[in-house]
């Protein structure tokens, strides 16, 4: 399977995603450049973490205007899978690929830790290799991760099974003290209605090998592979 990782100016987890795809999963990785107009035939697009355009103005707000984003939106409209991680989640929201927005953390501080999220649904192309309710250890590192949407949107996300990951405590329960950024309903990751665009604040690509703390992120990418039987 061909995974394309986009480098925006200021992306900094693009290499992490690329290495997880190639070194750990042994899949084909393609480095895509923000000024390009061509996705070079990739099956999956990854919008990586980082600080695209320095997060100046607002996280993700400038990157959505990058030339390549037109191709990414078209790819998503065709039903092609897109994974937005951290800054990539912010870009996906800014680009209208996902509902809601990511605001400044409730603590007003950047937060970096190995958090816990619970798999809320395995009925997506990004989570079918997890067990229902499985607790994952994934690193987070962000200043603007507080998922926010109006009640109607949140209700719809819940009803449609679009909430994929939720922050939980060590017992696997939702708990305001285990929600590292004050996200509404503890939401850490969602898919769009069609189920082909995933956005999440935690970094599955940085949790691809036990030697660096966790390998719980691998199954997310394996889910995409299982989907097409690669």
């Amino acid at each position: 399977m061909k995974f394309g990782v986009i480098t925006f100016p200021g992306s900094n987890s693009d290499e992490d995603a690329f290495l997880a795809i190639t070194d750990v999963l042994g899949q084909e990785g393609v480095k895509l450049w923000h000024k390009d107009h061509d996705l070079r035939g990739v099956d999956v697009v990854i919008l990586p973490g980082g600080f695209s355009y320095g997060d100046y103005l607002r996280a993700g707000a400038i990157a959505r205007f990058s030339p390549i984003m037109r191709e990414v939106v078209a790819h998503a409209d065709r039903g092609g899978p897109v994974v937005g991680i951290c800054n990539g989640f912010q870009i996906a929201c800014e680009a209208g690929l996902l509902p809601g927005a990511l605001l400044r953390n409730a603590s007003l501080q950047f937060v970096s830790e190995l958090c816990r999220v619970r798999v809320e649904t395995t009925e997506t192309r990004f989570s079918n290799q997890y067990a229902p309710g499985q607790i994952l250890r994934l690193p987070i590192a962000h200043g603007d991760g507080r998922y926010t949407a109006d009640d109607a949107t949140l209700d719809r996300l819940e009803q449609n099974g679009q909430v994929v990951f939720r922050y939980v405590n060590a017992k696997g329960e939702t708990d305001p003290s285990a929600d590292p950024n004050g996200s509404m309903r503890g939401i850490a990751g969602i898919v769009n209605e069609r189920g082909n665009v995933l956005g999440l604040m935690p970094h599955p690509e940085r949790a691809a090998e036990a030697i660096v703390g966790s390998a719980d992120g691998v199954a997310l990418f394996e889910s995409l592979l299982a989907q097409v039987g690669v």
């Binding site: 940085r206 030697i211 703390g213």
Partner: peptide
């Protein structure tokens, strides 16, 4: 202090802050 620092980017960190020394593969 170190909760405000990204410690996981570049995926080399074996032992982060808080121990005797930090270790990177």
């Amino acid at each position: 202090v170190y909760r405000q620092y990204d410690t996981s980017v570049r995926t080399n960190t074996m032992l982060g802050p808080g121990g005797d020394a930090a270790v990177l593969r």
